[in-house]
Computed example of a mutant assay.
Amino acid sequence: MAKERGDNYYTIELGQAFIGDQSHVVPENTERYHHERTVAYKRCIKLVESYLATGTVDWTPALHCAAFPVESDALRTSFLKFLSELTNRELKPNTIDGYRRFTYYFIEYLEGKGYRSLADVKRGDIAAFISVICSERYQATSLGAHMPGLKLFLSMFGETEPFLPEIPGHLPKKRDILKVYSDDEYNRIIAHLDEAEGLSFRNKAITILAMNTGLRAVDICAVRLRDIDWEHGIIHIVQQKTGRTHDIPLTEAIGNALVDCLLNERPVSDLDFVFLRSVAPHGPLMSHAGIRNILFNVVNDSDIEAKGRSYGTRITRHSTASRMLRNGVPLPVISEALGHGNKDSVMIYITTDNAKLAECTLPLPRGGACHG
Rank of each mutant, 00 (worst) to 15 (best):
L154A: 00
E31D: 15
V25F: 15
C221K: 00
A119S: 14
P284Y: 05
S345Y: 07
I334Q: 04
P61N: 11
F163Y: 15
A358N: 15
H146P: 05
R89G: 11
L262K: 00
A355G: 01
S142W: 01
T352A: 00
G367V: 04
K204T: 00
E49T: 07
C370W: 04
E159F: 09
E185S: 02
T242L: 05
L199G: 05
E4P: 00
T213C: 07
F153A: 05
T207M: 09
V180A: 02
G372W: 11
L357D: 01
Q16A: 13
D183I: 13
N94T: 08
R309H: 09
V180Q: 01
R292I: 03
A145T: 10
L262E: 01
I189C: 11
S23W: 02
G158C: 05
I19M: 09
A217G: 10
C44Q: 12
D176H: 15
P162M: 11
F275Q: 08
V25P: 00
T313D: 10
R188Q: 09
K46A: 07
S50T: 14
R76V: 07
F275Y: 13
A62L: 08
R100N: 09
L271T: 08
V329L: 13
I234Y: 08
Y10T: 04
L47E: 05
H192S: 04
I348A: 02
R100Q: 12
V268Y: 13
V333Y: 07
I189E: 05
A62N: 04
T352Y: 03
Q239A: 13
G368H: 06
G55T: 02
C261K: 01
N256P: 03
I348E: 02
A191R: 10
D97L: 14
L83F: 11
Y349G: 04
D58A: 05
H170G: 12
L80Q: 12
F157R: 10
S278H: 14
R326M: 06
A119E: 13
L271W: 11
L276M: 12
R326T: 03
L250V: 00
R326H: 01
L258P: 03
I206N: 00
T141N: 01
S322R: 01
H318Y: 12
E49L: 14
L258S: 04
N187L: 09
L110R: 02
E111W: 01
L209K: 03
G198T: 04
P93A: 06
F82R: 04
L263G: 02
G55I: 09
T251W: 04
I133C: 07
T207I: 08
A40M: 15
L325D: 05
Q22W: 10
T103W: 03
V48I: 15
